[in-house]
């Protein structure tokens, strides 16, 4: 599913331009070393780590979009980094659990 289609279902706030990449699955984590080691390719990262380093790790791990939970604000230097790496950044007021469920449903990975 394209990021654009995914967000049409989720309706989260899109903070960057929307790259034309595919999302196959999702990964929920706030530990960047964990994301680096375990996140699957073409996934969306669900996290509260609103940080420039999150983009760096996402790019290494083949993550195409990052969803910031609990209304965490993206710091100034995070969004330009995301644009450069062509990673979409979205924001929601939901916590990591509820976001995971919403994304899981949208991707038809759970009921």
């Amino acid at each position: 599913m394209k990021i654009k289609e995914l967000n049409e279902i989720l309706n989260f706030e899109l903070l960057t331009t929307c790259p034309d990449s595919e999302i196959v699955t999702a990964y929920t984590s706030d530990l960047l070393s964990d994301v680096m080691g375990n996140a699957p390719d073409d996934s969306v990262l669900i996290t509260i780590q609103a940080h420039k380093n999150t983009i760096a790790v996402a790019s290494l791990a083949g993550i195409n979009a990052v969803i910031l939970c609990n209304n965490r604000k993206a710091p100034e230097d995070m969004l330009p980094a995301a644009e450069k790496e062509e990673i979409a950044v979205l924001s929601t007021g939901l916590n990591q659990f509820d976001t995971s469920i919403a994304v899981g449903r949208a991707l038809e990975l759970c009921k």
């Binding site: 706030d30 530990l31 960047l32 070393s33 780590q49 609103a50 380093n53 965490r72 604000k73």
Partner: peptide
């Protein structure tokens, strides 16, 4: 202010 931190990656890896 919420979300502001001077913590290093090492500290974040400690949760």
């Amino acid at each position: 202010s919420e979300g502001y931190s001077t913590a290093t990656d090492w500290i974040r890896s400690m949760g």
